[in-house]
Design a protein around this nucleic acid. Sequence first.
DNA 1: GAAATAGTGTCTCTTAGACATTATCTT
DNA 2: AAGATAATGTCTAAGAGACACTATTTC
Lengths: 219, 219
Amino acid sequence: MNPTLIVTVDIVLFTLSGMRLKTVLTRRERDPFAKRLALPGGYIHADDDHDALAAAERVLRSKTGLVSPYLEQLYTFTGGVRDPRGWSASIAHYALVHESVLISDAEHRFELVEVDALPELPFDHAAIVAHAVKRLRDKSAYSSLPCHLLPPLFTLTELQQTYEQILGTPLDKSVFRRKLPELDFVEAVPDAIRQGKHRPAQLYRLRPDRRLALFDKAV
Amino acid sequence: MNPTLIVTVDIVLFTLSGMRLKTVLTRRERDPFAKRLALPGGYIHADDDHDALAAAERVLRSKTGLVSPYLEQLYTFTGGVRDPRGWSASIAHYALVHESVLISDAEHRFELVEVDALPELPFDHAAIVAHAVKRLRDKSAYSSLPCHLLPPLFTLTELQQTYEQILGTPLDKSVFRRKLPELDFVEAVPDAIRQGKHRPAQLYRLRPDRRLALFDKAV
DNA sequence: GAAATAGTGTCTCTTAGACATTATCTT
DNA sequence: AAGATAATGTCTAAGAGACACTATTTC
């Protein structure tokens, strides 16, 4: 009924490094496009994978050794021209991690590349990244999504800077802090204080029950 | 590589009838679930379909005879338990039409059912409809999407009532009309006036270049 | 005390919301 | 004129934005 239908998952894994939005690329082992940098991806294993999300988790782990606390289906890219092997469907996902998750890459299994300075990518992976960046930006304006780019504990200044990076626009400190209690997605951690060269800052965390909180208004 | 991977498209076709949000269901011809009411859906034809969107158009036309001016990919539902034939992926889509498009159903190829009073549906079609309703409601709050439930020409009162139905909340007439010029997605049609028993109303149309306009703020 | 960052307060201007008013048609 | 719907105007209160100010640390 479906003679040659290729079904894969691809993952756009974002992180914020050096105040720049970057994504993880892996070097392809096999043809087509062997040796080329591309999004981590692979076939669905009908026997092992409960669903596409589980397949994405498995593929991400096997290709990069990484596990992401936030992983969401993005869009399914389809057609007869995107893959030289034939008509294909790629169920694309995107994920967010804090930079510290990436330093355990002893075997150098992946590269980190700025999303604004991508190399030429095989298949329609450039379009997939573009779609993921748009989704991340759009959704971040009115949700708690950017928290997943931060470490478990963070200061309000770090939180604001993260939103500013993703949204690409400066935010007023006073306005930002006034809204936080209403949006109600972060909470102060008692006795957790960030010490530095200057006045110490209260540390906050994402409320576990608000991992993806959607707001009526923008942050 | 993918021994038995079933790939289909399913379509949630919405319309507004009698001030109620309804969806189109068809009676299945073959097993599994032959004779049962279900979402219109079918296999992807790798030879004929340029991509999944084209497949959804073709399937909708072949099962119901309908063509929708607005059709968008929703989400891909996957897994080994949703279809008794094996591991499957359904690339679900949703579409919006005005009620008048549906009256040409001489052969009675489909049923119209309120989304709040669905019969028991096969597969995970109930979840697909629920997902589509949520997407429609969420997206309608800050976009021109609901216009596609209206005829080509409509009054501002009809437009407001459509938004109220989808959003499930009353809107203030004065506020609604004040925002329209800013949101800039409808335009008055010169010399087009709706006559009735009372004061005539100016007719408007969706601006062709704003078929899916996204707003910074809610309508 | 200077420098730097954390955190709060105040003013203004925009705008949503509620509601009143005017306008134009039919019977 | 009455009744109904279309369309616009007005007042108020909430909130975003801009910016000043205070607080707490290190050197």
